[in-house]
Design a protein around this nucleic acid. Sequence first.
DNA 1: ATGGCAGGAGCATCCTGA
Length: 299
Amino acid sequence: MRVATWNVNSVKQRVPRLLPWLDERRPDVVCLQELKLADAAFDDLLGEELARRGYEAAVHGQTQWNGVAILSRVGLEDVVKGLADGPGFPDQEARAVAATCGGVRVHSVYVPNGREVDSDHYRYKLEWLKALRDVVAAGPEDVMVCGDVNIAPADADVYEPGAFEGHTHVTAAERGALGEFHALGLRDVVRDRWPTERIFTYWDYRAAMFQQNLGMRIDLILASGSVAARAKAAWVDRQARKSAGSKAAASKDGAPKVAGPSDHAPVFVDLDEAPDGDIGPVVPPPSAPRSGKSVRAPR
DNA sequence: ATGGCAGGAGCATCCTGA
């Protein structure tokens, strides 16, 4: 089962990239963030194209800002929009949606930005993370939290730690809130797979930050131990962050403007089948051991 | 310290992002 998460920064703007990306990468489950449109508009925009590709969609959108979704072609059950007892700013925003896909409880999340340290919005961010933690803690063991967490887990996850001193995304309180998910047993599957690599998932549009690889790793796939143990591969799809064509080609008279990228890249994890056949009817041969770990150990 | 770039609302420019 291939799971991806992508902050698309307006799904309306990203359609010319999203559909070819689905066809090329063929993820089974996709968590999207920053849809920036309402549920009905999402359905009008993509409903038919997604159905043609075999995806069901759980959408929790709103006009203008935020908005999250889960696309799945391995089942989409028990959809929950928003966070139970979650805080608002001042009203609840469309920042979380959950569904059970292929036997795994999947959460697509867009964590509040925080804006300025110790601001109202920063406190809202920390409260929101606590509410998400409580929802995950109360849920099933096989769980994934995927999305834009707006926290760089460690100094190695920002291009220049000194540039972020006193800013959000790197404070001890934010990292502590992220640590609560690890305390529940969740793993950061990309960092587990690449312990010492310099990996970013977000690059500011300005000042050619992507071309210089000056970014941050703030889009994460967190998975319970039971799910993380099935991870065969985990990576960032940098290709999706690249500009499509040369400036010369894009600026030709009358030529349609080439669709630009989101400022975030997608993150992927490939999971082996569940040992007990959660994602399909798997009947072991009579002599096969019924308990214990999968024979197909992750490489 | 500020701007750089991009998107949405909506029609001038402001808010948000991180």
